[in-house]
């Protein structure tokens, strides 16, 4: 019997695991009902995993991919709708959870479902040069000058979103500015005058 030794060559990667087809194709009933983990999501403290609901194989041209529908739990929160995985199914980053470890994940889930309730702001102040430019531009075009130099802020809409975006006049818990902001690691700024 030959041992399965894989020697990796070339660029290193953050991924660790197999492609989804490698896992699902070798399981009974294509692994429906089993749990799967994206390894890169292990960086969050809350558990993230997916439960396979349905599997559809792909034609020969797409042999690295597979179409899988999953019940997704991201950062300890179960998403209300079933997610389809197709575009990312080729990534060699999926890991199968053995049946005896499934219960541990579920236990962690019930224990840890409280991340900080951050409300993101809706608006951001303009940068200083832009303020001056806009004043002059509006004068040139004969428009009314702005009173508040504020721009709307847009975010990506993802079902995975953990933090909430302020609605209407809701007061955000954090504010984004145009400056450098407060550094997380002040050790990098030794001898540099901030502000």
């Amino acid at each position: 019997m030959t041992t399965k030794v894989v020697k990796y060559v070339g660029r290193t990667t953050d991924f660790k695991g197999k492609t989804l087809w490698e896992i699902v194709g070798s399981l009974k009933n294509f692994g429906v009902g089993r749990l799967i983990v994206r390894q890169v999501f292990n960086r969050y403290p809350e558990p993230s995993f997916m439960k396979i609901v349905k599997v559809q194989t792909c034609p020969d041209e797409e042999r690295r991919r597979v179409r899988v529908w999953v019940e997704k739990t991201f950062r300890g929160r179960k998403l209300p709708e079933i997610t389809e995985i197709y575009r990312t199914s080729y990534k060699p980053d999926y890991q199968l959870i053995s049946k005896d470890e499934e219960q541990e994940l579920y236990k962690r889930l019930t224990n840890e479902y409280n991340y900080s309730d951050v409300i993101l702001p809706n608006t951001i102040e303009m940068p200083p040069l832009m303020k001056k430019f806009i004043v002059r531009d509006h004068e040139k075009k004969g428009l009314q000058t702005l009173k508040e130099f504020i721009m709307p802020l847009s975010y990506k809409h993802s079902p995975n979103r953990v933090t909430r975006i302020a609605k209407g006049d809701e007061k955000p818990t954090i504010q984004f500015g145009m400056g450098l902001g407060k550094p997380i690691s002040p050790s990098l700024y030794k001898g540099v005058p901030l502000e």
Binding site: I124, P127, M130, L153, F176, P183, I184, S187, L188
Partner: peptide
């Protein structure tokens, strides 16, 4: 330290640029 700081700065930059771009597009 550097990784966290870079991530923070880059996130801030992306947010700012997104806002400016959206403003001018509108």
């Amino acid at each position: 330290d550097e990784r966290l700081e870079l991530r923070r700065i880059n996130n801030a930059y992306n947010t700012q640029m997104r806002a400016i771009r959206r403003f001018y597009v509108e």
